[in-house]
Amino acid sequence: MSFKKQNSASLISHILILLAVIAVMAFLRPESFWTVNNLSTVILQQAPYTILMAFGMSLAILAKGIDISMASVMVLSCYLSAPFFKEGNWLLGVLIAFGVGIGFGICNGLLISKIRIEPFIATFSVDFVALGIAYVVCNGKYIYGFSNSFRWITNGELIPGIPNVALITIVVFLLLLFLTRYTIYGRELYSVGYNAVAAQHSGIRVDRMIISVYAINGSLAALTGILFLGRLNAADPSIRGTLTMDSIASALVGGIAFGGGKGSVVNTVIGALIIMFIRNGMNILGISTNWQQSVVGLIILLSTFYNLGIENVIKKIIALRSMDQKQPVQ
């Protein structure tokens, strides 16, 4: 079977879940869920942060790794850059935010590729380091009260009706989609994810590829951090929240397979929307946040079975169809 068909089969099956989640909620709570207001809040104001982080997570997983440290790196870069944004020294703020993010990313990449530490262990440790530093720097103080012009970056509407944070997410999505699907870089990324040994034999610099992936993650973390500052109007270590878990969940539920190479950033967006709608639905149904964690866990488990099951079914259908138009064997 052709490669494209397999991928579209996987994508279709995940769009189906998303639609099912929306349909169930629309059926249960038409008056509060199925409103323009609620849907646009979830999609345009809540989901972007998870989606941005999940992009990074997906890239790492595609390259046969994982990045546990993103959320803490985000907090740290947020914290270190916040004073400058508050003073109105934007250039320095941006430089520091991205410097911290990319710096930690490169660190992760070096640990994984050069020192050959398992990605989970490397980024898990870096997560503690980054969060620790953030707490030290914070020292119990919040930084709050940013100027309106700074908060406009997140909340303004360059295009009426679409908050900038959503617009930025769309731009990042298009960039990543282009990068992963239509460039040599993307091809090499997938090769490394599928089979790093063969990639190395083909002359692909595997180490550099891995370092660059984690550097991209770092810059995504920094970007998310800046946008978060604008939304919350405050920097505080607890904004880390469930972002790490949600971004892993988004990637997995969207159909990015652990072990590398399978899926694309489109899957990530769908996965993140599934997670966000489930959380939103549970809020509306009045399910406590504690229970929500368990439900998200269950969803991840179920999606694993789903990925195995439904994809096979779709593949079989495609296979049967292509059997009808029998092609000659050479």
Binding site: F3, R181, T183, Y185, R187, Y194, V197, A198, G261
Partner: peptide
Amino acid sequence: KEGLVLQTPIKENLTAACLKKTFKMGIL
């Protein structure tokens, strides 16, 4: 183990070692 990326199409394996030569400006 070393020669092929088994999960990808024939044509992608054929160009794997000469991506820069096959594709100008880094675009597939």
